[in-house]
Design a protein around this nucleic acid. Structure first.
Length: 579
RNA sequence: GCCGACGUAGCUCAGUGGUAGAGCAGCGGUUUCGUAAACCGCUGGCCGGGAGUUCGAAUCUCCCCGUCGGCUCCA
């Protein structure tokens, strides 16, 4: 037990060393890669000798050895080595990954190492003073990981663990993990009968059940309304197109790996669409465009299909068929900044409406290999950055991480397990307008090339719905709930009255239902309503029928009030507008 | 795709070489009840698929498929 709290990053990194020390003792000859601290914990990558692997069952033994080493109170001893010395030492130890790392360290930089008992590691530090100074840790699971994340490199085995300043904090964290598992969207999807995935259907393809479809419709209706309000024009485009179109757009050149194979129709090859941009471009170029028509904002809820490797599929968050809330903005260069700003405002508004007040913004700029002229890149990057800054938003700059065809802003939100998922993206494209020879006639009577922006706000209906479910733990706000009110009768005698109330609520625009379970006890129906996370349960017995009221139980606040039907409608209206 | 784990009824899970089980759900009946589970009964399984070992396999071995945790990639 340490009284003073150690910086968590240091603590976790030191725990990673402790774990590596234990692994090296238990598996002599193990090679080790990197072992950083990460959010909520740490990991270390290993390659065991003789092609052996450890599994989750080895973790308790490793943990036990870690505790044993802690008992020895080994110091974390720092030393600085000359480059040649370090290379020699790690070659002697047979640690090829460390040798690789040293070779990547720029000349002239200090090479520091840490020794903990017999364990010797290349490491920048800092560390806790000794192994006993780690109050609480736990190993969590193993995973495969390529060296340098490169699939041409050997695959190492990674052990993930977590470490905290006290047992209580560790317990709290483990509890948090358990809570997160409970609000996993895949579990909620089944429990609330929202969607399913089926082996018979095929991987990464989603079946939206009636409840899920209801929520999606509400989201889509809201989305369309907002887009019309902000000067977007809604369009529809097909699901397939001639292969030639994908040649022209360049997708077959740089995106073919993610596209499904061709199908032949009357000797002509067609492809299922992985993106909508070429279609929207064809709409733009279907006739001569004037500068007066710019900016032209074309939006569509577009279902696309992309091949994803089987190991990457994940519930609704990573699928093969999904519906993007896609839009393409064609504008003049001097309109670019205002357009980006408009999109950013829209992202924030949209996210806030769905309860996401914290988003993470990344700005990715020009990579080494890039299409388009430098001044276009500069203009676009400046537009993106200024739009972020004038809104007072934080962002992370990723230099050189942009696509080859343009810089971009990505917006991430997090799932229940803390994993980051990209949703909104605002992406300039200097490539496609060029390839399709897009132009508009300017005030000067001459043809000019428009700038083009791809953007999505929610990302895809599937992913957004998944993250949304986890965000609310399945208890969606009133306006999104598939069933907003259930009317529960004390006995079957009140069924007619309940159906009448339901009809009035439906008429007022709410989704209300009367559970069809003759003879079932009220308590059972209440329990079902609670488990289904229906926001309001209107209990109706003799008293309510006589008084023309409903005894409203809020499943969220646990509150209970008697309301007349008009009052009930008024209350629902108010809440639906706000939440 | 790669590394590891897992796959038993619709769901959650028990069953480690000797006749496939429980709870919930579903169905049938009885019950008409005041804020989180009424009672009784019934149905339901090629134990993911295939091959092998064995007198005998849910159980042991191999291959395949799928799922999960990661790696890479991405909305």
């Amino acid at each position: 037990m340490s009284a003073s709290s150690v910086d968590l990053e240091t603590l976790r990194h030191s725990t990673a060393h402790l774990m590596a020390a234990a692994v090296c003792e238990l598996f002599p000859g193990a090679e080790y890669g990197i072992g950083p601290s990460i959010e909520d914990g740490f990991y270390y990558d290993f390659l065991l000798p003789g092609g052996t692997h450890f599994s989750d069952e080895d973790l308790p033994a490793i943990e036990a050895r870690m505790h044993e080493i802690q008992g020895r109170h080994s110091q974390y001893q720092r030393s600085e080595l000359a480059r040649a010395e370090a290379l020699l030492e790690f070659r002697r130890l047979g640690q090829r990954f460390k040798v690789d790392l040293i070779e990547r360290i720029p000349e002239g930089e200090v090479i520091s190492c840490y020794r903990t008992g017999d364990f010797f590691d290349l490491c920048r530090g800092p560390h806790v003073p000794e192994t006993g100074a780690i109050p609480a840790f736990k190993l969590l699971h193993t995973a495969g990981a390529y060296w340098h994340g490169d699939e041409t490199q050997p695959m190492l085995q990674r052990i993930y663990g977590t470490a905290w300043n006290s047992q209580a904090e560790l317990d709290l964290y483990l509890e948090r993990l358990e809570m997160a598992r409970k609000r996993d969207h895949r579990r909620l999807g089944r429990e609330l009968d929202l969607f399913s995935l089926s082996d018979e259907l095929g991987g990464g393809l989603v079946l939206w059940h009636p409840n899920g479809a209801t929520v999606r419709t509400v989201i889509e209706d809201h989305w369309r309304r907002e887009h019309r309000r902000r000067g977007y024009q809604l369009v529809y485009t097909p699901h397939v197109a001639r292969e030639q179109l994908w040649e022209t757009s360049g997708h077959l050149g740089f995106f073919a790996d993610e596209m499904y194979g061709p199908m032949e129709v009357e000797g002509e090859r067609y492809r299922i669409k992985p993106m909508s941009c070429p279609f929207h471009i064809l709409i733009f170029s279907s006739r001569r465009r004037s500068y007066r028509e710019l900016p032209m904002r074309l939006a569509e809820l577009a279902s696309v299909y992309r091949f994803q490797r089987s190991g990457t599929l994940h519930g609704l968050l990573r699928v093969r068929g999904f519906t993007q809330d896609d839009a393409h903005i064609f504008c003049a260069p001097d309109q670019a900044e205002a357009e980006v700003a408009g999109v950013l405002d829209m992202v924030q508004e949209m996210m806030a409406r769905f309860g996401f007040n914290q988003v993470e913004i990344d700005l990715s700029t020009k990579p080494a290999k890039a299409a388009g002229q430098d001044e276009m890149w500069e203009l676009a990057e400046a537009a993106l950055e200024r739009a972020i800054q004038t809104r007072g938003l934080d962002f992370k700059l990723n230099p050189g991480e942009g696509a080859f065809y343009g810089p971009k802003i990505d917006v991430h939100i997090r799932d229940a397990m803390g994993r980051r998922w990209q949703c909104a993206t605002i992406q300039f494209d200097f490539n496609e307008p060029e390839r399709f020879g897009l132009e508009f006639i300017g005030a000067d009577g001459l043809a000019h090339r428009p700038m083009m922006v791809h953007r999505t706000l929610l990302g895809s209906m599937e992913r957004f719905f998944g993250v949304l479910l986890e965000h609310y733990g399945g208890a969606l706000p009133l306006w999104l709930s598939p069933v907003q009110v259930q009317l529960i009768t004390v006995s079957d005698d009140q069924l007619d009255y309940a159906l009448g109330v339901a009809a009035r609520l439906e008429q007022a625009g709410f989704r209300a239902e009367v559970p069809d379970r003759p003879g079932e006890r009220m308590q059972a129906k209440i329990r079902d309503g609670e488990l289904a996370k229906v926001p309001y349960l209107g209990v109706i017995g003799k008293r309510e029928v006589e008084a023309g009221t409903v005894n409203l139980r809020s499943t969220r606040e646990g509150e209970q009030v008697v309301l007349g039907i008009d009052q009930l409608i008024e209350r629902l209206r108010l809440e639906a507008a706000q939440s």
